[in-house]
């Protein structure tokens, strides 16, 4: 045990450097995913029929193929047609677009969970469709989406680990280097697992707090009385 702590003290500075990158990737991917997923979900629910096949195609591609394949296509494949990205950029783009597809479906579910009658009532007091979405539907849907969105956040923290395969210096990458330098795979990966666990635990708590803070009596079924 003593040895483990000694090793941990030695390894932690490097691992924490990697952790910062992991967090940057997570945040970036989620923000890009939000910027893609939310508008896409609105198009899915309210958009014209004509563009639905395009939405479906996007969702099918990003949800139907392995994340790793997508990463390799972006980083190794696209340069062949003249689109080169840095390691970090490729990681952000891939994780972001992938998350966008999943977030779209989470948002769509939440929007559709808000009763149609809410829109009807909004229109009845003279709101346009856009006003109804903005002031009535989305405030409810965004509350409903928090649990599903928490899953996406937790998953994303862990998905970012695959970027070590294109040598992005994230937590996993640092771990790989440390492990082979010190011939200490067990200690290193246990430490890494602990770091991921702490990250996920902390972020879940934050989101849970947000959900609690935004809960509307009676609206957020998960939060009261159960």
């Amino acid at each position: 045990m003593k040895e483990f702590f000694a090793y941990a003290v030695m390894a932690l500075p490097d691992l924490l450097q990697g952790t910062v990158v992991t967090l940057q990737l997570t945040a970036g991917a989620l923000v890009i995913g939000l910027a893609i997923g939310l508008p896409l979900s609105l198009l899915r629910v309210y958009g014209p029929k004509l563009i639905q096949p395009f939405c479906t195609a996007y969702l099918t591609v990003f949800r139907g193929t392995p994340l790793l394949v997508q990463l390799f296509v972006v980083y190794y494949g696209l340069p062949e047609i003249g689109l080169s990205f840095s390691r970090m950029a490729a990681a952000f783009i891939t994780l972001g677009c992938n998350s966008g597809a999943y977030q779209c479906e989470y948002f769509r579910g939440a929007i559709q969970a808000v009763s149609r009658d809410q829109m009807k009532a909004a229109r009845a007091i003279g709101m346009s469709r856009f006003q109804g979405i903005r002031h009535i539907i989305l405030p409810q849907a965004l509350r409903l989406v928090i649990p599903a969105w928490s899953n996406e956040l937790i998953a994303m923290v862990k998905y970012t680990a695959i970027v070590f395969l294109i040598a992005v210096p994230d937590l996993m990458n640092k771990a790989k280097i440390l492990s082979s330098q010190n011939f200490a795979p067990i200690q290193t990966y246990v430490l890494v697992a602990l770091i991921y666990l702490v990250l996920v635990g902390f972020l879940s708590l934050v989101l849970h707090g947000i959900q609690r803070k935004l809960a509307v009596p009676g609206l957020d079924a998960g939060m009261d009385g159960r």
Binding site: Q118, A121, G126, I136, Q140, V216, L219
Partner: peptide, 27 residues
Amino acid sequence: GMVFQEFNLFNHLTVLGNVTVGMTRVL
């Protein structure tokens, strides 16, 4: 004005918010 069988109040707004939202956002 329209009053619905199922009330259709805006679930995320208080009683006061339900009445003001149209005045502020629409009018």
